[in-house]
């Protein structure tokens, strides 16, 4: 009896199913315990008046009404979208550019790959502390020392409400662009060399090869990384928390940081913190749904 025949026998199928479930079981248990249960608990908590982590009484949507009615929520929401905007402006194209440049390099490719990935290997907090010395507004700040060599007086950076988010995104991009560039490089490695050879024989320039072969080939990958980047930036927390503490005057406060403040910032209001978490989740779900819809529509056209 062939394997295919065994598989279609009712008893055989049950055994195969059982094996599959057994293989998945540890993962499912871990997911249920560490992901799904806390997630549902968080949703439940958002509907209750809480005393630390205890549920006191059901209050419906009061926590949502309370948190969304405050100025700091609106500020945090606007800031979070601002983070996303600046992240796409500064950080989306850079990994593509890096991967293209490294892809076109003929010597020292491994060195450049390692070099762009290196910041990603540094601990996140160390990176923040490093850049805080760079952007320090004191005369001893690294950037101010460099500017003073050019005769420019010392500036403040992190205390300026309109500069603080772009600066934080520059820091996050410096740290994260290398790893994204590696993914793009892997994507580009999958493009058939015959396409480039044919283009070269036809006399295509580097620019034409990039715009007519490379970029169209990685378009879907870029779409996936775009949504991942938006989801990631939407959850930005430790960068502003460490570098600016959400300031000045809440100018860098993110939604995740606001959630942290409700839970651990002195008030221990886990109900309101959960409400903010649920709102963030809903926004991200909506974004993911839009992306999936666009992606599916595009696939239909293809």
């Amino acid at each position: 009896m062939s394997r295919a025949e065994r598989a279609v026998r009712p008893g055989g199928r049950t055994v195969e199913h059982l094996k599959s479930w057994l293989i998945m079981l540890p993962g499912l248990v871990l997911m249920a315990f560490f992901v799904w249960e806390p997630l549902f608990e968080s949703v439940r908590m958002s509907l209750y008046k809480t005393r630390n982590v205890e549920l006191v009484r059901f209050i419906g949507l009061d926590n949502f009404v309370s948190v969304t009615g405050k100025d700091d929520f609106l500020q945090a929401l606007v800031n979070t979208f601002s983070y996303t905007f600046w992240s796409l402006l500064i950080g989306f194209g850079l990994p593509v550019l890096l991967s293209l440049l490294i892809g076109e390099t003929t010597r020292g490719k491994s060195f450049f790959r390692t070099a762009v990935y290196l910041p990603n290997m540094l601990p996140g907090l160390a990176v923040i502390i490093l850049w805080s010395a760079f952007f320090s507004g004191e005369k001893s700040g690294v950037l101010n020392i460099l500017l003073s060599r050019l005769g420019i007086p010392a500036q403040t950076y992190l205390t300026r409400a309109d500069w603080v988010i772009p600066i934080l995104i520059i820091i996050a991009t410096w740290k994260g662009a290398g790893s994204t560039a590696l993914i793009y490089m892997a994507g580009m490695a999958g493009i058939s060399p015959e396409l480039y050879e044919a283009a070269t024989i036809d006399g295509a320039t580097v620019r034409q090869r990039i715009f007519h072969i490379t970029l169209p080939a990685i378009r879907k990958l870029a779409g996936t990384l775009l949504i991942l980047q938006i989801i990631s930036v939407f959850q930005i927390m430790y960068e502003p928390m460490v570098l600016t503490k959400g300031g000045p005057d809440n100018a860098s406060l993110s939604l995740m940081q606001l959630m942290w403040q409700y839970a651990f910032g002195g008030s221990m209001n886990y109900g309101k913190a959960s409400a903010v978490a649920v709102i963030v989740t809903l926004i991200l779900l909506a974004m993911t749904a839009v992306y999936s819809w666009l992606n599916r529509r595009e696939s239909d056209w293809d």
Partner: peptide, 20 residues
């Protein structure tokens, strides 16, 4: 009562007046 929360509220005001 709730001194830490009170401090946070006042810090936000201080940040506003020393940056604007």
């Amino acid at each position: 009562v709730f001194a830490q929360q009170l401090y946070r509220e006042l810090t936000a005001v201080i940040q506003r007046v020393i940056t604007r």
